[in-house]
Simulated scan of single mutants.
Amino acid sequence: MRFTLDSSHQDFASSIDALLTKADMPAVIRAWNSGDTAPGLEVWHRLAETGVNGLLVPEEHDGLGADAIDLVVAVEQLGRHAVPGPVAETLAVAPALLTAVAPERLSTAASGSLTTVAAPPEVPYALDADVADLVLLLDGDTVGVATAGSARSSVDQARRLHPVTAAETLGRADAAAAFDLGALATAAQLQGLGQAMLETSTEYVQQRKQFGRAIGQFQAIKHHLAEVAVALEMSRPLLHGAALAVRDGSSDAGRDVSAAKVACGDAAYRAGRIALQVHGAVGYTQEHDLSLWLTKVRALVTSWGTPSWHRDRVLDAVVAS
């Protein structure tokens, strides 16, 4: 499959990157971790002004009516900057569910409100329900409004996980399609996180010196970073291919989404491991910005389907074909 982003996709990604670069995301994330979500919500408000929140919302409900390709382009940038909050839930899953059961709520979603979703058993908790304007529970194909319980901690301090209980049934939706959108958006986040850690590591090894030389000149360091670059370069076509399959309603969309989720997760995890090795133990301390990316990768690898779950789905599809 040959797939290249056109100039409109590249410009959209650049505009999001510029917005988030100016926001000082490490400071925003640390504030979110401490319970001060105001700076993070302001970032979300600015993203909504660019149309990010309304990407998958139909135009008749004040959205952009975009598709899965636009979604992964945007979410990869949000992952690259480790934006806190229910990214996959707000931008991908909620529009799909609300279009089916409560389209009157879509205009609010497009304007910048946050929505979180629990979809047991693969997604047993609702992420950041304490800051979300709407909490949804997807139980089988049944969608309902839910109430959230006390938060549970995650390895990523920017993620607060809430058990939920059903409060009001809204209707029925295509649960499989909504789940695939959540997994696709999570894969895009992981791709962006991995790319950010590769860039951070590449810059660091040009500055840190041992034996009078920048460590980036050592062959072993070059090999490690090259392996990360290859892994990320190989996962991106799978991500884009999955987005195309979802956009086109392909019967293989589930398989392709799972392949992308596994590949992007593995690449991001490898990027994190190598970043930690080249930075040394200081990279995992809370004072170092790298730790914010490392812990988010660790949390997202198992979010919206564990690697084993997605590998099993790919295997089942291959055997059945």
Score class of each variant (00 low, 15 high):
285 T>Q: 05
131 V>E: 06
202 T>N: 10
214 A>V: 09
124 P>N: 07
256 D>N: 12
250 S>V: 04
306 T>R: 06
311 R>S: 03
180 D>R: 15
13 A>I: 02
233 E>D: 15
76 E>R: 01
314 V>G: 05
249 G>M: 01
65 G>M: 10
75 V>N: 12
209 K>A: 10
51 G>H: 11
88 A>E: 07
115 T>P: 02
219 Q>V: 10
164 V>H: 02
10 Q>P: 06
217 Q>F: 09
29 I>H: 04
146 A>K: 04
26 P>K: 00
64 L>K: 14
285 T>G: 04
6 D>Y: 07
227 E>H: 11
212 G>V: 07
62 D>S: 14
12 F>C: 08
12 F>I: 11
240 H>Q: 15
260 A>W: 01
160 R>C: 12
190 L>H: 02
212 G>F: 08
75 V>G: 14
127 L>T: 15
161 L>E: 09
174 D>F: 13
280 G>S: 09
40 G>Q: 03
246 V>W: 12
74 A>T: 09
208 R>M: 14
9 H>M: 08
277 Q>R: 14
177 A>N: 12
260 A>S: 04
96 A>N: 10
194 G>P: 03
166 A>I: 11
64 L>N: 06
89 E>V: 12
129 A>V: 11
113 S>G: 04
206 Q>T: 09
126 A>L: 13
169 T>H: 08
235 S>E: 05
302 T>I: 12
4 T>H: 14
286 Q>E: 07
309 W>H: 15
140 G>M: 07
231 A>N: 06
86 P>E: 02
297 V>K: 01
179 F>S: 11
297 V>Y: 01
54 G>Y: 00
32 W>L: 04
288 H>Y: 06
12 F>N: 05
320 A>R: 00
182 G>Q: 03
60 E>Y: 08
303 S>F: 15
319 V>P: 01
179 F>H: 10
216 G>W: 06
305 G>H: 00
49 E>C: 11
212 G>D: 05
145 V>M: 02
121 P>G: 04
235 S>K: 02
299 A>H: 12
299 A>Q: 09
238 L>P: 01
205 V>Q: 09
142 T>A: 01
158 A>M: 08
317 A>W: 02
246 V>M: 12
234 M>G: 10
204 Y>I: 10
100 A>G: 07
80 R>G: 05
4 T>G: 01
163 P>N: 06
63 G>T: 00
213 R>H: 09
173 A>K: 03
311 R>A: 04
207 Q>K: 07
241 G>V: 02
176 A>V: 14
309 W>P: 07
145 V>C: 02
196 A>G: 00
153 S>E: 15
251 S>D: 05
104 E>Q: 13
100 A>C: 07
207 Q>C: 04
290 L>C: 03
203 E>W: 01
234 M>S: 11
255 R>V: 05
189 Q>F: 06
26 P>T: 01
171 G>C: 12
17 D>Q: 11
279 H>D: 03
16 I>P: 11
30 R>P: 02
226 A>P: 12
251 S>G: 14
27 A>F: 03
234 M>N: 13
65 G>Y: 11
42 E>A: 09
56 L>M: 06
73 V>R: 02
266 D>L: 00
211 F>I: 13
258 S>I: 06
184 L>I: 05
154 S>D: 09
253 A>P: 10
50 T>H: 13
93 V>F: 00
109 A>L: 15
51 G>L: 12
14 S>H: 14
6 D>L: 12
164 V>P: 03
115 T>M: 06
303 S>W: 13
291 S>T: 09
313 R>K: 10
153 S>G: 09
321 S>M: 05
20 L>K: 08
